[in-house]
Design a protein around this nucleic acid. Structure first.
Lengths: 346, 346
DNA sequence: ATGAAAGCGCTAACAA
DNA sequence: TTGTTAGCGCTTTCAT
């Protein structure tokens, strides 16, 4: 650690300029790969930067130009699906000058507002909001203030781009898989939604709609049976209890999320039933634990990595041109059959 | 969204000052709860702030004073243990003016350096580094630049505070649990470490040392058997394969992390053995999935929430007084027995 | 208790 | 192509 002994004042653009015998403007231009710098100048400046170990002060840059920071808001950090999105994002941004910073575990509109405001206050160059629950009004406000991409929500807006997996099709994949196995009484555990905006936009609502539609398409309209709880383990437990208490029990349960399926397994085990012999169970999200051998849960894999990569691409585009028309990217999920689904007992 | 039709320039401290008929200095003081403002001034300014919907520009604040931002570096976002730490952190910081931003999924020294630099470049007021793998030199450099707390690493330094769980004791909890059940041949799967600094500081190395020590303390020194791989599912798989191939097989495996235990279960299942009838398995971290019914893994719970809360407290202290002596907080883990451990076959 | 004014490090407009 | 200069929005002396 070679450092001057002086009370280490941080190296500034002025130090670099003096060291390289050029103007600060020149240094600034080199930093931003801006137009109008001779190769000789480039070399001189880069060398000075390296020699002094200079790093630009992001706050100062932010006062005039960009901060080279992209904010990503996540609903929580435990869902591995988000981790995949993040991988796609960071990998796509790795070759750029942008740094990704995450807004931590928020749930509910208030927390989301706090995080989005914090990011705007910090002059971030662009925002990626993953599965936000905020109102349309808030999303429009955010997108009106800073380039924004919304991930995992189906509503479209002129103000922001969206990237989402096709949850409607994903639900159909599950229904078809179970129906192909011979199931007819296929129940669904849903995350209940009452707000009309949300019913139109939130993935959980789309999955429920996809379930209904697919059941009809398979001629199983009479067997549509939804337990409306929440996308939590507890919700899965309660939802499965409801479904198991029906006069005629379903032979398969489509849980709207893997974590919901975990709760369902609890209830099924408590009821003394076996999976998949007595009842099949499928989840959604293909979370890491779905693949663990003792669980081996049939699930739907969202193209997390691609979602992230697309979001990054759209955001960079929009930072360059804030006026281009909003884009909607929809990606296709795939079914991952495992050992929790099997033909129904004869 | 009532906003002026003008190309919405952001409200600044000058707008507030004019609106409240006071100086910008006064507004600044109110913002920072600084000394020397009359109640009347307070009221006037606060009202103006509310009426204009003013929010301070963090970049501008950072140029002279604080950014009110705390950076948290996480090794990855999928480990639920980190999520608990984060809960403790954010809850402790919720009542303050500080905003937490996360540095995303890094693995390896290079990525850690990138994130820590990015946080320093953005003038963050304090950093919390969770389970960093960087060299002591880099940690000292970071801590010398900005108030820093290191979480989950056992080395101490004058430059930074540390918060860690007592992995040595945690490993003993597992060994004692298994020995109490009657096991003698207890194998361990380790994340191999060669660097001397790391062997002294990294949790995995401490766990291995704790395992050795506890085995000796129970008079089982002859049965110490470590498969040195990595803390991954793959590492667990390979490690268990090694242990199962011994001339005399262990009756219990202590995996250094829950994810490692998942890999071990794969290998055990492949070998046609049952858990816990033929072999017991214990993990470490008490990750969310350990509690899922099909897994039900005996594990060690680290006091994640407390770790986070302590880290936040120490950091705030240090931001106030950068010269106070460094503190080391060590918290106690607890064993969570579940269904993967049982007495050995007779 | 209050305010005027300097300046943090950088970028952008403009001059040369 | 290069350099000069004026701020960006805030905090911090330092007067008053």
């Amino acid at each position: 650690m070679k450092r001057p002994l002086a009370p280490s004042r941080r190296v500034t653009i002025i130090d670099v300029a003096q060291h390289a015998q050029v103007s600060t403007t020149a240094v600034s231009k080199v930093l931003r790969n801006a137009y109008g710098v001779s190769p000789a100048m480039q070399a001189k400046v880069r060398q000075a930067i390296a020699e002094l170990g200079y790093r630009p002060n992001a706050a100062a840059r932010g006062m005039r130009g960009q901060t080279y920071t992209i904010g990503v808001m996540l609903p929580n950090i435990i869902n591995p699906f988000f981790s995949q999105i993040l991988d796609g994002l960071t990998e796509h941004l790795a070759s750029t000058d942008y740094q990704v910073l995450l807004g931590p575990g928020c749930n509910g509109e208030e927390a989301e507002a706090k995080v989005t405001h914090a990011m705007i206050d910090r002059s971030m160059d662009g925002l990626i909001l993953i599965a936000p629950v905020s109102s349309r009004a808030h999303l429009d406000y955010v997108a009106g203030t800073v380039p924004t991409v919304i991930v995992g929500r189906h509503g479209r807006s002129r103000a922001y781009d969206t990237v989402a997996d096709d949850d409607f099709t994903g639900a159909a994949l599950v229904v078809d898989h179970l129906a192909d196995l011979g199931h007819r009484r296929i129940g669904h555990i849903d995350h209940g939604e009452t707000d009309p905006d949300r019913i139109a936009e939130m993935p959980n609502a789309i999955r429920a709609a996809g379930y209904r539609h697919a059941m009809q398409a398979r001629g199983l309209a009479d067997h549509i049976d939804i337990a409306s709880t929440t996308y939590t383990q507890e919700g899965g437990y309660l939802g499965a209890q409801q479904l198991l208490a029906r006069p005629v029990r379903p032979t398969a349960i489509f849980a709207g999320a893997d974590i919901v399926a975990m709760g369902a397994l609890d209830a099924i085990d408590e009821a003394g039933l076996r999976v998949p012999e007595d009842i099949s169970v499928a989840g959604y999200d293909n979370t890491t634990f779905a693949a663990f051998r003792p669980i081996s849960l049939t699930s739907v894999d969202q193209a997390g990595y691609q979602i992230g990569a697309n979001a990054a691409r759209l955001l960079l585009d929009r930072i360059v041109d804030r006026t281009r028309p909003a884009a909607q990217v929809k990606l296709s999920p795939t079914l991952v059959p495992r050992r929790t689904t099997a033909p129904p007992a004869a």
